[in-house]
Every structure is written in C-alpha cells, then in structure tokens.
Amino acid sequence: MPVRRGHVAPQNTFLDTIIRKFEGQSRKFIIANARVENCAVIYCNDGFCELCGYSRAEVMQRPCTCDFLHGPRTQRRAAAQIAQALLGAEERKVEIAFYRKDGSCFLCLVDVVPVKNEDGAVIMFILNFEVVMEKDMVGSPAHDTNHRGPPTSWLAPGRAKTFRLKLPALLALTARESSVRSGGAGGAGAPGAVVVDVDLTPAAPSSESLALDEVTAMDNHVAGLGPAEERRALVGPGSPPRSAPGQLPSPRAHSLNPDASGSSCSLARTRSRESCASVRRASSADDIEAMRAGVLPPPPRHASTGAMHPLRSGLLNSTSDSDLVRYRTISKIPQITLNFVDLKGDPFLASPTSDREIIAPKIKERTHNVTEKVTQVLSLGADVLPEYKLQAPRIHRWTILHYSPFKAVWDWLILLLVIYTAVFTPYSAAFLLKETEEGPPATECGYACQPLAVVDLIVDIMFIVDILINFRTTYVNANEEVVSHPGRIAVHYFKGWFLIDMVAAIPFDLLI
C-alpha cells in the first residue's frame, strides 16, 4: 500500500533555474538572501570558489559584500557603492579590487542584480563577478574607477581610450546646418538635424578633445543650467548677453562664444560640459537660429522629431539603469545623424518603425519583477520565466494532490484497515475457520451469522477504491517536481505499489 509523501509542494524551481543557467555559462556568482541580516550568502558556485580561493563552506553565510576579499588596494568608495546597491532595488555595476585567499590582487567587475517577489519586494541578490585585470595590471588604489561605466561593446579594446569628441564640431553647429540641408533625401539625416562627426583615429590627448566618459557625465550638469543662461549661451556672438549692473557675465554663455574659444586653444572642462549641455537642449539648428531671432517656433511634425517616441515608452518600462547606459552608448555611435529632440514631445505622434532597438522591449506582467540581467542570462521568455513566489501546480481535472487534506485522511483510514487485516486475518484463519468446520452448517442466516465476513468484505472494497484513487494521485519525481499527468501517474504506480495493492485487495476469504 503506498505511503508516498512529498510535502515540499507547491515547489518553486526558480532558484534552481537560475543556478542551472548560470552554471551553463561558466559564470562566477553568488546568491544572497536579502531578508536576513547583512544579506548572507546562501549559494556560491564553483567558479566563484576558484576565483577567490575560498571553499564553499568558508563563503556560505558570510555577508555578500565580500568584505573578506578586501585588501589594501580595495577602494572604500567601491565598497560603499556595493553596500548601497544592496540597500536599493536597481541593478548596478561596480569595479573593485579584490584579494584572493593567497593574497593576489585582481580588479573585478561586480554586477549586483536584485530579484523581487510578486509584491515588488527584493528577496534575493545575485552578484556576478568578472575579472577585468590581474594584480600586475591593477593601478594605484588612489585612482577611482567606479565613477565610470563599463566599456562599450562596439569599441575595440585597444581603442576604448582613444575615443574623442571634438569640441569644434559642437561649436560649428550653425555652420554645418547648410551642408545638412543640402544633403536632402540623399543624406542619412532628416531636415533640421545636426550631424556630429566623431574622430576615432588614435591621437595624443589634446586640450581640444573630450573623453567619452566626460560626455556621459554632461547629463548630470544640465539641471544646474538655468533657462535664461541656456538661451544666452545659444544666442551666440551676435547678441551678447546682458548683465545687470554690478553683475558679471555668465561664464556659461561665454563658453560657447566662437570668438572667445578661437582665441585660446584650450577650454576648461567645466565650460566644455556646460556648452555641450546647452546645445543638447535645442532640438535642431533651426531652433538655434530661432533663439537668435527671439522667436522659438513649435517643433515640426516630421520623422526626426518622432524618433524618440518609442524611446520614451522603453525608458518607462525599463527595469534597470543598464538600459540608460545602453541608450547613452548607442546615442554616441560615430558617423550617424543625431536628432536633438526633447523627450517631452507630442504624445499624438505616431511611433516610426526603427531597425535598431535601443531599449529592451516591454516586459510582460509575469516578468515585471525580474531584472534585465536575470532575463538576459536565463534566456527565457515571458511565458517560461515565473515570478519568485509559491505557485500552485497546474493539475488535470479529477486529480488528487498527494499533500491535500483528503489524501491525508484517506491514508490514515487505509492504515487502520491494514492494521485490522494484519490482526484479524490470522485470527480468523486459526480459530474461526476451525469452529466453522466443526459446527453445523448455517446457510440460512447468511452474513448475519458471520459479522467478521462483512467487515472483511468492506475492507476489500476499500482497498479496491484505494487502488483507483492512487491512479489519480500526484507524486514527486526525482527532481522534486509534482507530477499531475494521468499517464505518468499510471506508469509510476504500475512500477511501484500496484502489484502489492492488488494482492492485498483480493478477497481470499470469499474465494475459499
């Protein structure tokens, strides 16, 4: 008679799926529990143990900040960024110097990925580790590398530091407007667009060049630039800015003055950032001319202004700041037409079709709590990747769950009947059967004279019903998954307890 339990259901295979997918890609990662103190490590794979030199037993239950890997060259700011990422709910990448158990130093890129439950609360953290440099290539500990984003994938490793954006290309926007319009339909740009040429040739750093990471940081200074100062900065030398009595002219307006920039070969870094931020506020060169004239017309309804409409929906549905990093990277690809469009465009503009998908598509409701890094690593669709929660398995109709209350009560009843059979069957065979043979035949009273025979008949009927119930009862397979398919249940029961239950259900007393 089957006594099969499996009270692990309803099970959740999400954690096993993450481990299996990460292991298949030869990654070095740990999984931490966000619900406990210090976000203790609950799993670390073999790749991480080989990377740091510690065994799994030495890593388990330690804080996922990996303070046991810190050393003299470990930056405090990087460690603080990892700790801050564990307090938030967004994906974050941090470069930090770690030390192995043998004392060797290596520069590592740590990717902190939160995993949320159905309520939107962070319950786990996945920390992925990628070695960037070994100890002989690690720089000085005073050099802070965590304020910069990861290198873009479309640049060669040897040319990542030679990417320079020439400031004269930004200063000569109005001069290039006529050349853009003359391109017409034969050019790649839309009317009114501004073409910015980027020099990728390796050259020595000069005062006129600005690194790509500095251009990325310009967006942080746009908020500090007032509207009046932006307007004066875009007017140009024809209309000098008016300053109040006793007030000095704005240095932001002076930063885009061609006369002032041409007199000296070098520009201050602050002026460069502010000038680029001011130019980015204009949607095209037409807006710059309109600002000089004193009238700013409404933005025209053409394809170039609607190019950012799908980007707005993608940004609203993005799951991490990696989408913004990807957008900034692609927006700086050289030799393309940049349409400086305000994100607050007309909502009635139709979304044009684009061959290049900048932001990841909208994630469906079932995966809105899973970050983009987890979705990318697992390579699963929205119909396959579940949320991290207890999910009731989908069972067929008329199927009994093996952990249901009805099955528990039924098993206790069958257990009592088995005990009765084990006690009274030998007793009936030894004593009652002998008395029946010696006594007179009682054929007239039937079952009324033999109450134990009636009980034995009921017990046999219950055993037959138990066999039928076992054909529709779920079970737990070797992978700790609840199986509810009727065919698989029948095959599993035939290979197991079916023969024993059938022999126990045969009414031998009635056959004798």
Rank of each mutant, 00 (worst) to 15 (best):
R5G: 11
R5N: 10
R5L: 15
G6H: 12
V8N: 04
A9C: 09
A9W: 14
A9R: 14
P10L: 07
Q11W: 07
Q11A: 15
Q11F: 12
N12P: 12
D16C: 06
T17E: 08
T17F: 11
G24K: 12
G24A: 08
Q25K: 10
Q25V: 07
R27T: 13
R27F: 09
R27D: 07
K28P: 13
I31W: 01
R35Y: 12
E37R: 07
I42Q: 01
D46Y: 05
E50V: 07
L51T: 05
L51R: 01
L51Y: 01
S55Q: 08
S55T: 07
R56G: 01
E58I: 01
V59N: 01
L69Y: 01
H70F: 13
H70R: 03
G71H: 01
R73F: 03
Q75T: 12
Q75W: 01
R76F: 12
R77K: 07
A78L: 03
A78Y: 01
A80W: 10
I82F: 14
I82C: 01
G88V: 12
A97P: 01
D102I: 01
C108V: 04
V110W: 01
V110M: 03
V112W: 01
E118C: 06
E118H: 11
A121D: 11
I123A: 15
M124E: 01
F125L: 05
L127S: 01
N128E: 13
N128M: 06
F129M: 05
E130K: 05
V132T: 11
K135M: 05
D136E: 06
M137K: 04
G139S: 15
G139E: 13
G149M: 06
G149A: 05
G149D: 10
P150Q: 14
T152C: 06
T162D: 15
F163I: 06
L167C: 15
L173F: 14
T174P: 15
R176Q: 08
E177V: 03
S178T: 10
V180W: 04
R181M: 06
G183K: 11
A190K: 08
G192Y: 03
A193G: 05
V194W: 01
V194L: 01
D197G: 01
V198S: 05
L200Y: 15
A203Y: 05
S209Q: 05
A211R: 11
A211K: 15
E214L: 07
V215W: 09
V215A: 13
T216C: 03
T216E: 10
N220H: 06
A223Q: 05
G226F: 08
A228T: 13
A228D: 06
E230Q: 10
G236I: 08
P240Q: 07
A244P: 11
G246T: 14
G246S: 10
L248H: 06
A253W: 07
S255E: 13
L256Y: 06
N257K: 15
P258M: 13
D259T: 14
A260S: 07
A260E: 14
L267Q: 06
A268H: 07
R269M: 12
R271A: 12
R273G: 14
R273D: 14
E274R: 07
S275V: 07
S275N: 14
A282S: 11
A282I: 11
D286P: 07
D287C: 06
I288W: 08
I288Q: 04
E289D: 07
G294H: 14
V295I: 14
P297S: 07
P299C: 12
P299H: 07
H302G: 14
S304F: 08
S304T: 14
S304K: 12
T305N: 05
T305V: 07
A307I: 12
M308R: 07
P310Y: 13
P310F: 09
G314M: 09
L315W: 03
L316V: 07
L316Y: 07
N317F: 09
S318D: 11
S320G: 13
D321I: 08
S322M: 07
S322V: 13
S331P: 09
P334C: 01
P334E: 15
V341F: 04
L343C: 14
G345S: 07
G345A: 07
P347Q: 10
S351F: 04
P352C: 07
R356T: 10
I358P: 12
I359P: 14
A360D: 15
K362E: 10
I363D: 09
E365L: 07
V370N: 04
V370A: 05
T371C: 09
E372H: 15
E372R: 10
T375R: 04
G381W: 11
G381R: 03
V384S: 04
P386Q: 01
